[in-house]
Design a binder for these strands. Structure first.
Lengths: 203, 203
DNA sequence: TGTACATCAGTGAACGCGCGTTCACTGATGTAC
DNA sequence: TGTACATCAGTGAACGCGCGTTCACTGATGTAC
């Protein structure tokens, strides 16, 4: 009960990851330091090395976890959206932006330089499942004619860029300055996505 | 001729900025250090303080210069595109992506945390001229019916997000991994923009 | 159930690093008379 | 054209900082017999 609190910590690995996320939330990815994380977990600054080979490995662990969470959110949103392919596509996109906005900690870790380390090939490959989910959704839309025919990966890149950029703009805060964004991130995102997807329509 | 090379340097301020850009190109924004830049310019590491109050001011100088260059490029592309509003809009967007891809140094500086410093309100405000250029282009498209009616800022945010995200994806290198991107950044970007702008069209 | 021992998960001291920044300085340049 | 002087733009030594990482260590835990 004396040393029990810190020694043979229940799950220090987990605690370190949560602490690191909090640290990123507070001071950004560049403010993340192993020493800070360790001290936040109430542990000496060398203790993390029993759970992560290096700082980079911690970041990578967070990044991969984030990728997983993101894909879960996208999957859940897609399922909730019902049967219409375009609605499903929009739901996926909106989920991406929402995730990035309310989990900036994971989002930052996912895009950390350390994530490019293991094998160059990079993010699309890491985002493998999500990317395939997106392509599938685009193809489905093409099937019902709600998106024009043609190379689906080109449209998928467009959609990916759109939500990625939107998330980025929210994060760096120019968007909240817009009057139209007063309705909040979710609704505004949906408005933008719908507007973009209707572009060129006869209306 | 002896000390002439370094002492009362022709234009050390400029040399430092160029050195800093090179440093960012080589090792990214987080690899930028005043000491490295100074030594690359062949000058003691305290010399920069006669030209910049702090490291942050250097970064900000680069950022604002980058914003200017970007807007010039967008303006030139727009003018070259001729009279059709949609072509002009596409040219603006393509110029954004191209700039980000071939001047990653400026692009990084523009999005540096130091740029948020002066007044919260942020990037859209800094991007003031470019943002207005974009909105004008969108309104023109709505005028000729090549974009649907409605709040032009929503569409402008969509376009901005699209090119911003596309630039980001090129930079973090998932895009080059796509087979469709083999044709190169410029043509691929144009294909994506055209595809997105045709979404929903009767085709 | 006890004992011996390997392993695990902590500790604190120490290392070397590059960094931004301050300081007192000095030599070159430009200007007023 | 000369001289005196202010200013400008460099210099090198020094500061303190937080960082990642290594090291030898120690006490707790789990396991084999």
């Amino acid at each position: 009960m004396d040393t029990g609190d810190t020694y043979h910590h229940g799950d220090l690995r987990r605690a370190l990851m949560e602490g690191a996320l909090a640290c990123i939330r507070d001071s950004g990815l560049e403010g993340l330091s192993l020493r800070r994380v360790a001290s936040a977990a109430g542990v000496s600054h060398t203790a993390p090395y029993h759970h992560f080979e290096s700082k980079g490995e911690l970041v990578r662990a967070l990044g991969y976890e984030g990728l997983g969470r993101l894909d879960e959110r996208m999957g859940a949103a897609e399922a909730e959206a019902g049967g219409d392919p375009l609605e499903r596509l929009l739901a996926i996109g909106a989920a991406y932006v929402t995730f990035a906005v309310d989990r900036p900690d994971y989002y930052a870790a996912m895009r950390a330089p350390e994530m490019a380390q293991p094998h160059a090939g990079g993010a699309v490959e890491e985002h493998g499942e999500s990317w395939e989910r997106l392509v599938r959704a685009v193809v489905a839309c093409q099937g019902t004619g709600s998106l024009p025919a043609g190379d689906p990966t080109v449209l998928a890149v467009g959609m990916w860029s759109l939500v990625h950029g939107l998330a980025e703009l929210w994060a760096t805060s120019p968007i909240p300055a817009l009057p139209a964004a007063a309705r909040g991130c979710g609704p505004f995102t949906e408005a933008v996505l719908r507007a973009m997807v209707r572009v060129g329509a006869a209306d």
